[in-house]
Design a protein around this nucleic acid. Structure first.
Lengths: 228, 228, 228, 228
DNA sequence: TATGAATGAGCTTTCATTCAT
DNA sequence: CATGAATGAAAGCTCATTCAT
């Protein structure tokens, strides 16, 4: 949704503007984010921004599209565990993707989460407000497929479960980060090594085991990494 | 956190202020809530408010404390299903409590949810920001007790599970309301009859069965109300 | 339409604000008039103005009401020529009133004229836009009465004539001022002596004679002040 | 007042610019008219416009000159009623010309009227501001000639009368259009048939009879189309 | 000559907080 | 203790004009 003028901008300037906007939207929810701060950080005139974008929402929409696109790229680089598409392996893959994204692009992840949380706070203008609250089609599809493959119990209410899966996947990231890393050092450099540490994987396993046990048709034997 | 001056106020005036603040904070997230609106509705001078409360945040904190206290009162009036305190029956009781609170006190429930959603949006000023993200002690305790009673699998990570239970319980209310009630009529009068309708209970059962299946040591035989 | 806060203001401050607003609206049509200029001249904070008035239009409406009221006061102080209410004497009285108002209160007269001229320039929001273009009820009534009293020819189209009378009365003032007074000195002190000078009266006579000759049923014998 | 560069432009481009400017100035008074809109509609770069014209006012002045010239062309194509140049027939001809111009070129007529109305609103920059207020030389000449031909009463003040005639001719057009044509259909296609309809001519007659009665030396017997 | 990105002062409006009375 | 007027920074946005390319 940016204007043509924005696309024609020299790479460095465009990057500066995106950088500034990302920083701002990552640190403040939409309403609080300040156009003034953005143009100051980007080192451009206020009027210029309004030649690149129609208004604040337009800029915001563009930043959101960056977030989605970067996530898509990351998803493409993260090979799914198997091509047989085991239902729960796929769910695990989604969770890992979210976590990895948060590690690699903490600011973008923040923006994404703000967007998720603010959805029901919208001031009623948007007709799609109810959308979020009624569930994420991504998970609706996942559940439907899972039931068709006999992986998920038929008695599970897909609407409710999809809603809860969405909430979990969207909100569990910050928890895991907070839990794992008081050693903020290893996070600063964007290293994702932490994702593959045994402790991290154990936590992920734990989460997914709970989910699987909750909705699977034939839950696997419980692993006993903790109980030993 | 109100000042002494507030406590010394005549009951009617105090009530008027609380009423006005509750209405405002229920309809607008913290940032948007307007002091002007509150003092107008309460019929007091703006300066007076600043003699009762240090600032906007102080007032907000006080309103939050009211929410918690009212919820506690409601909890006390809602007898637990059995005194033997079966773990999952207790969880069900908590879920019902949240739903009932939302039906009986939609404004207070709204404030609670705003607070929950905004927690990670805080602008870094608050030191207790991390609190929410690390989990709700209410569920920590529940899980610990459950493990001690051999109701919950020992391998469950209580920190993670508590966090997720918190998220679910806090966010599932609006979903259920949205799902159940297009018939806004039955909600208008604060009637909680809807809570005890079969459809509602079925959804609640579904949710709790999933949770129980997920974390129980020996999950019950799955009920088959849906598969019939 | 000002707020209560404005009415409660000390006289001097209220006067300062009115002064500043009148100066601004007299020198710039509504769109160009600047709130910044007004608050600077008035020596108040910008926010204060918005405690006295809802918005720019509200302030403008208030200033317009002052204009109307001052004009009404002036009208009350200017005795009609005779109590028999001869039709054309009444018209002359109206013209004199307008001229006198322009001499006594040139700024207010300017504001009035801006309002008159801007009416058809309105950006389509106002439903009463067409009102001005279709005639002034003041003159409609005057003409109707004149016809009833057998003073005005029955064949005159009252709609058209009312429209033209309105235009003339509203726009002739500046012309007469410009014509009479290069000697701005005599105008500066608000003296209206110039109104009663023979030259001025002769011009007024000339205007009214033309109008009378145009629409009267039985025009008077033409005076011959000019032809001698 | 356009620059040399503008005159050297290829015809099509020049036409596009004029078209765009005319549309804009016809729909918005000078202040509101947007340079952006004009260059967009014209399909030229913004900087180019400033190579053709010194600034917005310069462009505006040029458009005004087009309006005048087009009107002159129309005047040339509309044969005066008789070559003996009867004074009031000539005035009628002028009124018809204005009305016809408004029907044929509603946009240009709009621009003309905006210019007329805004003249006294000018912000003092223009030295020729007083010009309008002192009368239109067109009518000055007309009146002087009329007196010489013994058609107009010698006692009429030509300055004042010229001013008023100017006001009437400039502002009566929209009134007549509004009065005649709710049937916007016949106006849409620029057809001037409406001008020659009996009702239109009757209104014009009425207007001119009033004027004639007002200023003629020997007013004709009043026609009695209305009184019958 | 043509371009169109850059500019920045300007606009109206909002709001939590202070403080003199 | 109560009052409510005063504050002024900050908000999002517009626009005619300039100037480097």
């Amino acid at each position: 949704m940016p204007r043509e003028t924005f696309k024609r901008l020299p790479e460095t300037k465009r990057a500066a503007i995106e950088r500034a906007a990302i920083e701002e939207f990552a640190n403040s929810p939409y309403r609080n984010a300040s156009i003034n701060t953005i143009v100051d950080k980007a080192g451009i005139a206020k009027g210029s921004l309004y030649q690149y974008f129609k208004d604040k929402r337009d800029l915001y929409g563009y930043i959101l599209s960056i977030v989605q696109q970067k996530k898509k790229v990351l998803a493409a680089s993260l090979t799914p565990p198997s091509n047989s598409m085991d239902t729960f392996a796929y769910l695990r893959w989604m969770a890992q993707l979210d976590l990895l994204f948060r590690l690699r692009e903490p600011e973008l992840a923040n923006i994404e989460q703000y967007a998720f949380l603010e959805a029901p706070l919208r001031e009623g203008e948007d007709p799609e407000t109810g959308e979020r609250v009624m569930g994420d089609t991504r998970f609706q599809d996942f559940l439907t497929q899972g039931i068709l493959h006999d992986d998920i119990a038929t008695w599970v209410d897909t609407g409710l479960a999809a809603y809860i899966l969405g909430v979990i996947i969207n909100l569990v990231g910050p928890y895991l980060i907070a839990r794992l890393g008081k050693d903020a050092e290893s996070l600063k450099d964007g290293s994702a090594d932490i994702l593959y540490e045994p402790h991290t994987q154990a936590l992920l396993d734990n989460l997914l085991d709970v989910i699987e046990a909750g909705i699977a048709r034939d839950p696997q034997i419980r692993k006993d990494y903790y109980s030993k």
